[in-house]
Design a protein around this nucleic acid. Structure first.
Lengths: 244, 244
DNA sequence: TATCATTGTATCAAGTTGATACAATGATAA
DNA sequence: TTATCATTGTATCAACTTGATACAATGATA
């Protein structure tokens, strides 16, 4: 189950955390031909933000990212990878910290530790939209997927963080087969092509896309077929990690 | 000129620095068919380490990397790029901090801030070996270039940091023309090929390498020729940032 | 003037990519 | 039952890229 941390208590536990450092997770999913990113609505503020948090003194930064994601979204066993450090001077932590506290009925003293500067390490993950059921933690009113190409205003520098994560995803997609992580275990060639076209923002010739994908020897054709239209049924494919 | 910080005074200035965060710089150079990396020998310890340091409260992490490199090596205007965060639990900061202090005749109390855990952001730079004259700071006995494929033991996790920087460099070289930064302004096709072969650890057919490089339209042939052997003189080339 | 290692470029086959064509499929409608 | 239709799998051909090899040009040295 979700592990809960009461905000008031959290504010008294400065010694638990590594100072100056935070993590933020950009969780990508794919649905309805849109590349989505998972965002929390922070309690009583209406603020949209990435699932993020601090680093315990006795855990690695990578571990912190996994734990934070679990605590804030309920999702476990998500493979996260760091992609960039956001270390500018004015990321807005002071105002953000005060706003969060105020939303919980607390006014922070001028130099409260939680309003100090944080440098954030960005992590990203690609996952099968249909396989996860994110649930918000106590510090959030809700959690939801948002089209990455049509984002509302976000807290802190989270728009920038998502943009950089998207750049990284495009680079990865270009020369590794990471894309499969965004799809269900079995998918059609059309699904795969729509994913590539959405993420990379360009279209490909169907015949050539299919030839290219099959030539990688990483797709296993599943004999079971699929029905759902007045036309030839497409094969289903499954990613085969042999040449991942 | 080099900006100096006395170590004893440094240890009293905890409030100047952002806690928990450090930067380390992997500076690559190319000489004698070897890919080199710049290392400091830390004063009175014989320890070899990357030029690294802490982050001021009022500077961005990127700025800190540039400043640290300048302070510790005297080199200015080096284009640095972050490539990875090293946030494991046991990077060895406690022992390292004590060893450094001891080398300066200081024994640190059990919980001195300098022995605490640091998460380090790795930065790398590629530069023309012949154009720089690194000079060590007061905290170092010497500074020098070391063959990246034949490194001695290093302080902390710096061997890992260099390995990761090398991975990044190879990836970059593979699909951008960053390699030119490691060469003098003018170079022969053979120089360029040796650089690629050394960094990527594989050899290329001379004719095809030349064809490929010229096809990128990023090399400008300089009319001046080069002498230095009993054979046809090669053209000199210069990188042309048009299609960089 | 001959020698020689090195350099610049050409060539040909093999492999990859882009554009287009077309038959196969299988649910739906006539 | 048969025709229709959008979609799918694959073939084909030209354009382009890559790998392997060949060879003439160069220019200091002997």
């Amino acid at each position: 189950m979700k592990q809960s941390i009461d905000f008031k208590q959290f504010l008294t536990n400065e010694s638990e955390w590594l100072p100056s450092l935070s993590v933020d997770c950009v969780i990508f999913g794919f649905h309805d031909n849109e590349l989505k990113v998972l965002l929390l609505t922070l309690r009583n503020t209406g603020l949209l933000a990435l699932p993020g948090g601090l680093v315990h003194r006795q855990e690695s930064v990578d571990e912190a990212a996994g734990r934070v994601l679990q605590e804030r979204t309920g999702m476990t066993n998500i493979f996260l990878e760091q992609f960039h450090v956001f270390g500018q001077l004015n990321r807005g932590n002071d105002a953000f910290g005060r706003q969060l506290a105020a939303a919980n009925g607390i006014e922070l003293p001028p130099d409260h530790w939680f309003t100090q500067r944080y440098v954030s390490v960005g992590y990203y993950a690609l996952l099968d939209f249909s396989k996860v059921m994110p649930t918000p933690d106590e510090r959030s009113d809700s959690i939801g997927w948002h089209d990455v190409h049509n984002l509302p205003g976000l807290a802190l520098d989270h728009t920038l963080i998502i943009q950089k994560a998207l750049d990284t995803l495009r680079l990865m997609l270009d020369h590794k087969l990471v894309g499969f992580n965004l799809l269900p275990v079995m998918f059609t060639m059309a699904d795969l092509q729509r994913l590539y076209e959405t993420v990379l923002g360009q279209s490909f010739s169907r015949a050539n896309f299919q030839r290219k994908m099959l030539s990688l020897n990483s797709l296993e054709r599943v004999e079971k077929k699929w029905t759902g239209g007045a036309h030839k049924a497409p094969y289903l494919y499954r990613f085969n990690r042999k040449n991942g």
